[in-house]
Design a protein around this nucleic acid. Structure first.
Ligand SMILES: [Mn+2]
Ligand SMILES: [Mn+2]
Ligand SMILES: [Mn+2]
Ligand SMILES: [Mn+2]
Lengths: 159, 159
DNA sequence: AATGAAATTTACCCATGGCTAACTTATTTA
DNA sequence: TAAATAAGTTAGCCATGGGTAAATTTCATT
């Protein structure tokens, strides 16, 4: 019956295999930017993530060490097979969460921000629950409508 | 139409007024532990959060600087009025999220962990949405039952 | 009151992920 | 092709929040 609390930092420490939250953001973005040409560059990446180029360089070197991307000094950034797969899953996770929040009534302007934060904190299990919720709402449009009008009703209360 | 992405670290940077994720965890726990006697101590706090005493000391000094708690070297830790209020709200937030996850079908063993992570990442707005969901489910026990059996059905698929 | 044990602090150390300034390499352009 | 510009890297800094080892203070016991 003992609760076992830890601090946020402790929970967010990367396991041996897994990536840190920031590594995930970079990999996710590299995946997005590689969509067009099959590669991206430090400048494009740093702009997309609103960090300075040296920060991007450092992280890219790390991801390269981990064999998730192919990169050599001054060159282009390309995903390795493992990185591509991981990136794909990160995007999927991102989209499930964004979808989920949208269904819940989180306003459009907040969805990206909230998703960008939450995506790094939820377990596989929880992701499944989010996904189940999406499916449930898709399979029950009547309930979905009822829910939408319910929260519409609440909005006015809060303004 | 421009998406504006930032890295996790950037989103999690504390605003001038607000607390970091770890500060929130400490304050929340100080609030819990103060329940019995109106105070707590470094040892109790560090044990409760699974950190070493020096880490607790450091954070307690910080919170004391911010006038959220009253503390002097080797003494007891007591909440200041502002800290008490904040702590109360942190606990409320924690409970809303735990409730929300529970309704969604996140297994009991995961609820604490998931809550401890998610609580630091959601906006006021999103909290309202979580809360609306709870209310909706409370007001519609029929739908709630339907949802529970829906996810029960899904469980078997995944094992 | 003296001593030993427990609680707490201090002084450092480490890792992460930002940043700026200065330097180097690559690419344009005159 | 030489000079100017753009792109990228390196070195070194900062803040956060952990940790250990050693010193200090408090408390309990004799
Ligand atoms: Mn993110
Ligand atoms: Mn994302
Ligand atoms: Mn927490
Ligand atoms: Mn909590």
């Amino acid at each position: 019956m003992e609760k076992d609390f830890y601090t946020f930092s402790e929970y967010m420490k990367k396991e041996d295999d897994s990536l840190t939250a920031s590594m995930e953001d970079y990999l996710e973005m590299i995946y997005r930017l590689s969509g067009r040409n099959g590669f991206t560059r430090i400048n494009e990446l740093s702009a997309a993530l609103n960090v300075q180029p040296p920060s991007a360089t450092k992280m890219v070197q790390k991801l390269s060490e981990l064999k998730l991307i192919k990169y050599e000094k001054y060159g282009v950034i390309m995903l390795e097979e493992e990185g591509r797969l991981l990136g794909e899953n990160l995007i999927k996770r991102h989209n499930v969460i964004a979808n989920f929040l949208s269904l819940l009534g989180v306003p459009d302007e907040e969805i990206l921000t909230e998703t960008e934060k939450i995506e790094h904190t939820v377990s596989e299990q929880t992701m499944k629950c989010f996904n189940d919720f999406i499916c449930f709402m898709n399979n029950n449009p009547d309930i979905r409508k009822k829910y939408i009008s319910y929260i519409e009703g609440h909005k006015s209360n809060l303004l």
